[in-house]
């Protein structure tokens, strides 16, 4: 149990405050996203059968729409002369408090996703996250932690869009 200290274990069950993405679902942002994933589904432009109540965003879009709002520090400029800066701003990832694991790399191990409905253009989306579990495993490279983060994405009216149970590997 080299990595899973009582301090780290105490984060299990901790939740983030519900947190709105700074922008609502925007047609232009949906278009760029759909073009980037090369999915020409006409539902993203609101064409075809209106099963979804108007134009929608791709299935996983709500999980990727949490961006730095106006007024955020410019971390690219702050790190312009930092040779170790990898370009990531981890603080926008989930709203959860950082685990006290300085110096440990973070790898995305995968996810389990449950989908309920698409977000429509114009809707606002909020997320709530929780450290569902933290366990230690031995790998060939030494000990590592498996951090399970559960996030629910909802509309302002509280309708669940999707749930993501993500495995983060720290080692």
């Amino acid at each position: 149990m080299a990595l899973l200290t009582d301090d780290v274990r105490s984060y299990i069950g901790r939740t983030s405050e519900p947190w709105f993405a700074c922008d609502a679902i925007e047609a232009g942002a949906v278009r760029r996203y759909a073009q980037a994933i090369m999915d020409p589904d006409p539902a993203y432009a609101g064409e075809g059968r209106d099963r979804f109540g108007g134009p929608v965003a791709p299935p996983l879009y709500p999980a990727f729409m949490f961006r730095l709002p106006f007024g955020s520090p410019d971390y690219l400029t702050e790190n312009a002369e930092n040779p170790d800066f990898d370009g990531l701003a981890t603080s926008v990832s989930s709203g959860l408090p950082e685990l006290p694991l300085p110096g440990l790399a973070l790898l995305n191990g995968g996810a389990e996703i449950e989908l309920f409905r698409y977000a429509r253009h114009g809707e606002r989306v909020l997320q709530k996250s929780r450290y569902a579990d933290i366990t230690e495993r031995q790998s060939k490279a030494g000990p590592m932690l498996l951090v399970i983060v559960e996030t629910t994405y909802e509309t302002e009216a509280g309708e669940v869009l999707l749930k993501v149970r993500k495995t983060l590997i720290r080692r």
């Binding site: 999915d39 059968r49 099963r51 996983l60 995968g110 996810a111 989908l115």
Partner: peptide, 30 residues
């Protein structure tokens, strides 16, 4: 990007499900 690969997985299942189906659960490991 792993994030891009998962978009492809979601599209693949959504399109296969067709207009009256629904891709409910998706799990993957990188």
């Amino acid at each position: 990007n792993g994030s891009l690969k998962q978009q492809f997985v979601a599209q693949f299942l959504k399109d296969w499900a067709g207009p009256d189906g629904w891709a409910w659960k998706i799990a993957f490991q990188f």
